[in-house]
Simulated scan of single mutants.
Amino acid sequence: MDTRQTLPSNGSFYTIIQDLYEHRQPAGVLYEDNGVTRANGLVTAMYEKEGRQWMVLDDSVHIPIDKLYAVNGTFSSDYSEC
């Protein structure tokens, strides 16, 4: 049986991203940007803007945390592409 690690319903990737940021560990993410987009790199910053939490990868990609579908193999519960 195939299984995958998922967040609880309405869960957030915030704590996972924060842990990767604090420990300078690489992040492999899937996120929504006019379609599913893949990005990889170190999380170099986290910030809040207009009530949303954001992350920045080392290639200067700014990603809203609420647009993430997956981080390092952990998926949002509502993502069904794989």
Score class of each variant (00 low, 15 high):
residue 1 M to L: 08
residue 1 M to S: 05
residue 2 D to T: 09
residue 2 D to Q: 06
residue 3 T to A: 02
residue 3 T to D: 04
residue 3 T to L: 04
residue 4 R to L: 12
residue 4 R to A: 12
residue 5 Q to N: 11
residue 5 Q to L: 13
residue 5 Q to D: 14
residue 5 Q to V: 12
residue 6 T to E: 15
residue 7 L to Q: 13
residue 7 L to K: 13
residue 7 L to R: 13
residue 7 L to P: 14
residue 8 P to F: 10
residue 10 N to I: 04
residue 11 G to F: 12
residue 11 G to E: 14
residue 12 S to D: 11
residue 12 S to K: 05
residue 13 F to Y: 14
residue 15 T to F: 11
residue 15 T to A: 10
residue 15 T to G: 11
residue 16 I to K: 02
residue 16 I to E: 10
residue 17 I to G: 04
residue 17 I to W: 07
residue 17 I to Y: 07
residue 17 I to T: 08
residue 18 Q to H: 05
residue 19 D to S: 04
residue 20 L to E: 09
residue 20 L to P: 08
residue 20 L to I: 06
residue 21 Y to Q: 06
residue 21 Y to M: 02
residue 22 E to L: 12
residue 23 H to M: 03
residue 24 R to G: 00
residue 25 Q to E: 06
residue 27 A to Q: 13
residue 27 A to K: 13
residue 28 G to M: 08
residue 29 V to R: 02
residue 29 V to D: 03
residue 29 V to Y: 08
residue 29 V to H: 07
residue 31 Y to N: 01
residue 31 Y to V: 05
residue 31 Y to R: 06
residue 32 E to N: 11
residue 32 E to C: 09
residue 32 E to I: 11
residue 33 D to Q: 07
residue 34 N to S: 14
residue 34 N to E: 15
residue 34 N to G: 14
residue 34 N to H: 15
residue 35 G to D: 10
residue 36 V to M: 11
residue 37 T to A: 07
residue 37 T to E: 10
residue 38 R to P: 09
residue 38 R to W: 07
residue 38 R to K: 15
residue 40 N to Y: 08
residue 40 N to C: 08
residue 41 G to D: 13
residue 41 G to I: 12
residue 42 L to N: 13
residue 43 V to Q: 07
residue 43 V to H: 07
residue 43 V to L: 11
residue 45 A to D: 11
residue 48 E to A: 01
residue 48 E to R: 01
residue 48 E to M: 04
residue 50 E to A: 00
residue 51 G to L: 01
residue 52 R to P: 02
residue 52 R to I: 00
residue 53 Q to V: 00
residue 53 Q to N: 02
residue 56 V to Y: 03
residue 57 L to A: 04
residue 58 D to R: 01
residue 59 D to T: 06
residue 59 D to G: 11
residue 60 S to Q: 02
residue 60 S to T: 03
residue 60 S to C: 03
residue 61 V to G: 00
residue 62 H to P: 01
residue 63 I to S: 08
residue 63 I to M: 15
residue 63 I to R: 12
residue 64 P to V: 00
residue 65 I to K: 02
residue 66 D to Y: 00
residue 66 D to M: 00
residue 66 D to N: 00
residue 67 K to D: 10
residue 67 K to A: 09
residue 68 L to D: 08
residue 70 A to E: 10
residue 71 V to S: 14
residue 71 V to R: 14
residue 73 G to T: 08
residue 73 G to Y: 04
residue 73 G to Q: 10
residue 74 T to L: 15
residue 76 S to R: 12
residue 77 S to N: 15
residue 78 D to Q: 03
residue 78 D to M: 05
residue 80 S to P: 11
residue 80 S to H: 09
residue 82 C to N: 14
